[in-house]
Structure formats: structure tokens, C-alpha cells
Design a binder for these strands. Sequence first.
DNA 1: TATTGTTATACTCTATAACTATA
DNA 2: TATAGTTATAGAGTATAACAATA
Lengths: 168, 168
Amino acid sequence: MSDPTPGLNSQQLGAYFALMEVSSLLQYAVEEHLRADGDLSYVQFEILARLVDASEGRLRMTDLADGLVYSRSGLTYQVGLLDKRGLITRSPSPDDERSVIVSVTAAGRDLIARVLPGHVDRVRQLLIEPMTGEDLTALGAILGRVRDHMRANPPRSAKPRAARNRTT
Amino acid sequence: MSDPTPGLNSQQLGAYFALMEVSSLLQYAVEEHLRADGDLSYVQFEILARLVDASEGRLRMTDLADGLVYSRSGLTYQVGLLDKRGLITRSPSPDDERSVIVSVTAAGRDLIARVLPGHVDRVRQLLIEPMTGEDLTALGAILGRVRDHMRANPPRSAKPRAARNRTT
DNA sequence: TATTGTTATACTCTATAACTATA
DNA sequence: TATAGTTATAGAGTATAACAATA
């Protein structure tokens, strides 16, 4: 027997919709800025930001792929674009000849440095400004817990089997 | 640690990152389910859900477009797909011959009814379950305020769709 | 054999601009 | 002229599968 799955109550629905709309608007605004100011997609920004953050400014492709929600081919595509623009370089790993080490270039660091202030401005203006200090603390704590829960229950493994429903 | 990102403190950054990651994972999970269970993209689901919610199950294209963050051509494309599948119909408006009325069909309602339980399950499992009742109340209230703020301050410097400036 | 990464390919989605028709 | 919607088109992005190289 399947569990009874009553719909969400209005409070739960409200939180869900608010989350989706807020993140959607924020994402839209942030992507618009990154594109206009640095000709970067959000994914590309994320890749560069991770590299800038990483020790010595380099990471293996696999490490990058694990952090993002992307397929490997998609990552190769995006990294290829960054490579063409001279924002990163790729080199074989000395430890493991199969691996590729991605490194930020000075140009890549410069671009992030140039784009970051405007990025932060948008985030502050849209997300931070309307919140009180208490709101901020609460939001960070709650979403932090939710994130941990989501990481522990990855949606991908929640549906390991591609068993398609037969025509009902 | 030195301040890595001038402008946002670690608490603000934490809330921002948590929001982006939570919404990203939730969006991913939900889209995966809708695709697998109903062969629907999230946009298509949103369109159908709005129509089901609307009075008499119909809305004008313009009303649909206003609710979503889409270009008109993008909406036409998606509605066209739904039309091909018999989930909606399009008819000229009696009031204004320029307008097109989009109506959900019985098949469209059936599909939403079939997909909704699984959709709700995912949302509950990922987002609702890890939160206490207090969390839920707080999250809804905070994000509701943020949403209102975002709506009031649309960062659309690059999308002057509405005729706000007539001196051009 | 398993893992790392690339490539070839096909497909979905989105936006811009030109277009029709109505107001 | 302005608005509602469609179409043509072009481009970005993504995933899958086949592939080569290394562990």
C-alpha cells in the first residue's frame, strides 16, 4: 500500500513557493549581471570562483565536477570555453596521468575580482537588504540544515532505477 | 581568516550559498521527477498548474507570460508543445481578437493530478521534512518578505519590456 | 576492469527580430 | 501607434554514448 500523501498545507506550500520564487529571481538577476559585466554564465562564474578559492588556484576536473551538478561532458564544454578565453589552463596531473588539473590564470583572477563587487551588490540589494540580522541568522541556520539533509539524501540515488511506470 | 569577499560577511555569504544550493538541488530533484513521471519540464508544469488553478481553467497568453519570467516567444513555444500533446487548447478571445485564451483540457487536468502526488512527495521529503514547525513558519515569513522586496525592486535594467519611457 | 576526461551528436530551451492582426 | 501573439532563426547549454588513455 502506498502511503497516504495528503497535499501540502498552505504554510508548507507558501514556504515552497517563496523559496522557488526568491531563488528564481535572485538567480535571474545574478546571471544577468554576470553576463553583462563579465560575459560569464553562472556556471562559469562558479567554476572560476571555486578555482580562485582553491589551494594554489587549481583543481582536478573530477573535483570540479563533484562540486557542481554537472555531467562531465558539460564541464568539459564549459572549461573549454574558459580555456579559449585564457581564464584557465589545463595540464596533466603528475600524480595521475588520467587526471587534468585546471588552474586559474591571472586573467581569470582579474575577471573574478572585477565582477565580484557587482555580484555582491546584487546579492545584498535583493537578498540581504530586506532581512534583519535575526532573519539572516535564522535563514542561514534553517537552510543550512535543509542543505545537509538534501546532501545526505541525494535525489539521484533516491531514484536509482529507471523503471518506467507502465501505462496506467 | 581574512575577508575573502569584501562586501558580504561570512554569515551573509552563508545564507546566500545555502539558498542557492538548496534551491538548486530542489529544482533539480523536482524537474527530474516531473520529467520521469509526466514528461514535463518545470515550466510546462507551472503553466498547467496555473491554468488548473485559474478560474474556469483558462488564462490569456499575456497573463501566463506575466506570471512566468519568460519571453513571449518562449511561452508560445512551450504552450505549443502542450497543445500538441492535447493538454491545453488555444482559442481567440471574444473580448479582444488579438488575445489568445489558453484552456486546460481534461487530459491536462488528469496529468497534473497524476503528477502532483509525486511532486509533493519530493518537496516534502527534501524541503519540509528536515524543518521543524518553527523553521517552517520562520522560513515562510522571511522569504515572503524577501520576495515582496524583490518584486518591488525589479532589477531589470536590461529588460525594458514595459513602456516605461515614452521619450525614446 | 574501473576511472578520468574528451568528443560527437542530438536535443531542449531561450531570446531577438521580423511579422501579422487587431485595438 | 501600441498591443497580442506567432514564426524564423540562431545560439547556448546539456546529456548520452562511444571513445582513448591510464590506473
